[in-house]
């Protein structure tokens, strides 16, 4: 999350909107965002809350039924709404692959 915050200008430059997303409630995410970036009173990109229905984590196929929450993954979606890049597991923490995918899209 902090890595995205550090690189947010790169993503903005690549005409990309970044969202963090989890199954937490909005107040919990707000507090987390403020904890991660206390100097700016929150991250400079919004965090989405899939708290009520856990529908989006299910739609994207990363919901863990046994545990009741999603797993770590990053999806890069182009302007036509098509998925261009997927990263799952611990490597998804590093935003550089996602950024690369976005800058490729910009060149098109």
């Amino acid at each position: 999350m902090k890595a995205y915050q550090a690189d947010i200008a790169k993503f903005t430059d690549a005409e990309t909107q970044v969202f963090g997303i989890s199954v937490d409630s909005v107040p919990a995410l707000k507090r987390w965002s403020e904890d991660l970036a206390p100097e700016t009173k929150g991250l400079s990109f919004p965090l989405l809350s899939d708290f009520k229905q856990r529908k989006v984590v299910k739609d994207y196929g990363i919901f863990n039924e046994a545990q009741g929450f999603g797993s770590r993954a990053t999806f890069v979606i182009d302007k036509e709404g098509v998925i261009r890049h997927i990263e799952e597991g611990s490597t998804a923490i590093d935003p550089s692959a996602a950024y690369q995918a976005c800058s490729m899209l910009k060149k098109k």
Partner: peptide, 30 residues
């Protein structure tokens, strides 16, 4: 998707169509 966000707004993926790429970074838990 249509979801509430930390900035008080509600976002849908469809509103970015033709405008911006979107990166969705899923986190396990806050």
């Amino acid at each position: 998707f249509t979801l509430p966000a930390t900035d008080g707004k509600t976002y849908s993926l469809s509103e970015f169509k033709g405008k911006k790429n979107v990166v969705l970074a899923f986190y396990v838990l806050a």
